[in-house]
Computed example of a mutant assay.
Amino acid sequence: MSFRYRVATVFGGSGFIGRHLIKRLAKTGTIIRVATRHPSNANFLRTNGAVGQIIPIATNIHDDASVAAAVRDADIVINLIGILYESGVNTFRGTQGDAPGRIARAAKAAGVQRFVQISAIGADAGSTAEYARSKAAGEQAVLKAFPEATILRPSVVFGPEDGFFNRFGAMARISPVLPLIGGGHTKFQPVYVGDVADAIMKALENPAALGKTYELGGPRVYSFKEIMGLVLTETRRKRIMVTVPWGVAELQGKILGKLPKPLLTVDQVELLKRDNVVAPGAATLADLGVEPTAAEVIIPTYLDRFRVGGRFSQRAGGYST
């Protein structure tokens, strides 16, 4: 596959979406710099390309000079960096609000041709969740510095390495109950990680994507309760679903949020109060020429490891306890 870009810098390329994107980008022959805090953690990506094609580089997204060095002589820049909770210096504002603007300014100064910013459905400066507010701030900062940038807003992203279906699959394996926060009515439109990676590639290729924002969702909308039911179906387990009122969930978030890797935070509870689906009239995967993949097609390929007896269990029919 040929490509008109020579050098790409991908921030957060060693993460969940990044590993799928790098495979696709490498096939075009592009030289790829993976800008990351810990280059050694990105070495596994090297095997996706030819010798010397994929180069992890140490980058501090909070430092202008470090970011400028990462994007120097690049033709395209893609920012995948995002966090689900704050930890130490990794705050929502610094990581998702300020850093995207810093990267976009450096990219514009370096003469970069295309910029793609991964945001999230629900990005809103008026949201009660700091996560959503910081995503909106990041979008605004990117477009101010690089008006031609393409913004992609995925819903919950699923795939073999995801932190969503896998989390509930693991929970179903050890817990007799599954929590339905707020009654389980919040709606989601899960999007396959491979489709997100394809959308990025399409955005780089299509001039019509310049300066546009796309919302990426799968072919079906699920309630939180339906998602839990899907997890139980694929793991073949019976579990009791228990409604957790918002007030109780907020209290749990305050307690669990103090853990190094919290299962729930107050900010995440706030996010759950709002549906996470593609907005009416928004540009979508279809506008980028990507057909969305159903969750039911993909999640059986990795949730089966949470079944009784493991992935290769011969148990069939109904749920197991």
Rank of each mutant, 00 (worst) to 15 (best):
A106C: 11
K144V: 02
F146Q: 00
A132V: 10
A123F: 11
R72H: 11
T95E: 09
K144M: 02
N41T: 06
D63T: 09
L21E: 00
K108M: 15
P147H: 11
A110S: 15
Q117F: 12
S134L: 12
N60I: 07
V112A: 02
A123D: 04
V142S: 02
R37V: 01
G49C: 01
H20F: 05
A123P: 09
I54V: 08
H62W: 15
V34R: 03
A70P: 11
G52A: 11
D124E: 09
A123L: 10
R33D: 14
A99M: 06
A109Y: 13
Q53Y: 08
S134M: 11
G82V: 13
R46G: 04
G111C: 06
G49A: 03
I31P: 01
V142T: 04
Q96N: 00
G122N: 13
V34F: 02
Q96D: 00
A70Y: 03
G111L: 03
A65L: 07
I61N: 05
S66D: 00
I151H: 01
A74W: 05
V116D: 11
R105N: 05
L152H: 10
N48F: 13
G111P: 09
A26S: 14
T28C: 05
R46H: 02
S119Q: 07
N41H: 07
A70K: 03
E130K: 15
T47R: 11
S119R: 04
D64E: 14
K108E: 15
T59Y: 09
N60T: 10
G122H: 12
N79E: 12
R114K: 10
G122F: 08
I151Q: 03
Y131C: 14
V77F: 02
F146T: 00
N48G: 11
G18Y: 02
